[in-house]
């Protein structure tokens, strides 16, 4: 689906979302309420120039007292790999974007990431994974690193990686694998109204970061939740 099709299905009552290059900014009507919308689209990498514009808008949302949710449409490549971006401190810009999303959430705005295309590595962490709830559409294709690059770095043959990927969701790219490790809360049904599915999601309040618990229940991350819980309990003793 294109961003326009997604927005139409999400917000049949209307939306005012405009694109600026590969970024989206605007607001929409959902039921009796309003939803802030931002987007990083076109499968483009996220560099400092993209991150700073997104964070500027998220800060405005965080500062508004409407308590309206923020929907973040995501279809990106990885972080922008360039001399200029790293020279100017890309890690700070991506961390800042993530922090603004976390601040908006702390100030009463639900943050919902909607992954409808690709996203990878640092860009994935700073956008979709920094939202309070992350959902995806079928066909979304998140990854940390593509298998050919992974083969280079790990010095393992790609055939071997492909073989091992069948046995575990823990390392290979793909939507199903990210669902199983708990990174993606749910995959929506494009045959139904996306607006209804968003409304249903917003009707359930969310408490705390449950991704590790979900990952354990889905068999993708057997140990993370128990380890984190034990350390929290031990430290409080």
């Amino acid at each position: 689906m294109t961003p326009a099709e997604i927005l139409d299905s999400l917000f049949p009552a209307g939306h005012a979302v405009t694109s600026e290059g590969d970024l989206l900014f605007g607001r929409a009507t959902l039921g009796d309420g309003m939803v802030h919308v931002i987007g990083a689209t076109g499968g483009a990498p996220i560099g400092i120039d993209q991150a700073i514009r997104l964070s500027a808008r998220v800060l405005e949302v965080a500062g508004s007292d409407d308590a309206a949710p923020l929907l973040f449409l995501v279809d990106t490549a990885s972080q922008r790999m360039s001399r200029r971006d790293e020279l100017l401190g890309l890690s700070e810009y991506l961390a800042h974007l993530a922090k603004t999303l976390l601040l908006a959430e702390a100030q009463g705005h639900r943050t919902i990431g909607l992954l409808y295309g690709g996203s990878a590595a640092g860009a994935f962490i700073a956008t979709a994974l920094a939202c309070g709830t992350l959902v995806a559409l079928p066909g979304a294709h998140p990854e940390v690193m593509d298998l050919p690059s992974m083969a280079r770095v790990t010095k393992l043959p790609i055939e071997l990686l492909e073989e091992k990927a069948k046995a575990t969701p823990v390392f290979a790219p793909g939507l199903d694998n990210l669902v199983r490790v708990g990174g993606i809360a749910e995959v929506w049904d494009v045959g139904r109204s996306l607006g209804d599915q968003l409304t249903a999601l917003l009707a359930h309040s969310r408490s705390g970061d449950d991704r590790a618990t979900v990952g354990a229940a889905r068999g993708g991350r057997p140990k993370a939740a128990a380890i984190a819980d034990e350390i929290l309990a031990t430290a409080q003793r």
Partner: peptide, 16 residues
Amino acid sequence: LQEANAGEIAIAEIMR
């Protein structure tokens, strides 16, 4: 990279 998906989400959990 050998547990890339688990590590990626761990980073997001840590930042939060």
